[in-house]
Amino acid sequence: MSQCMEGEFVAWATVRQGAWLRSALLLTGDQASAEDLVQDALLKVAERWSRLRDEAPDAYARRIIYNGAMSRFRRHSREPAHAVVPEVIATATTDDWLSGADIRAALQRLTTKQRAVLVLRYYEDLSERQIAEALGVTAGTVKSQAHAGLRRLREELALEQDSLDGEEIR
């Protein structure tokens, strides 16, 4: 029975680890912290696999990752870590020159909640209701954080603002 459950868990986790690692990289800004977050989530899911296997292990793991990212941030700083962010990001109307590192650095200038909402909405493509459940906040909070986060991210990346309000969060 235990070997059967282990096989199920390994199969489930193997399929998902890459996607979660990429989300975690956006949340934390660095590979090592992202790996820590995902490993911690996998461990917690494994510890409770007998109960979670028939329910919602994906939702549980996602909550661990996003709450872990927010706890980690609270732990280490009351303000975003600016040290890794360039002092000035050149203005541009095209984003062609932006590297992955530039984008992650700009994300780190957002609040943790704004960052989490944007990653869930525009990277994981979750709905407003799903984001609210994942973060344990209200739909209104999701909407306001997404709005503020988008505005801030566009400012940080010196992108055009014209599409900012053009899309309703589902």
């Binding site: 390994v10 986790a13 193997t14 680890q17 890459g18 690692l21 990429r22 989300s23 975690a24 990289l25 956006l26 590979q31 992202a34 790996e35 995902v38 490993q39 996998l42 984003d95 932006l98 590297s99 992955g100 590192a101 984008i103 992650r104 994300l107 944007l118 990653v119 525009y122 990277y123 988008l150 991210l153 990346l157 992108l159 599409s163 053009g166 899309e167």
Partner: peptide
Amino acid sequence: MNDDIRELLARGASDAVDTDLV
């Protein structure tokens, strides 16, 4: 709408180095 944001986040995530965490 906001497809540029989607594309940018995908670019930011694409640097993740796949590793065995399982």
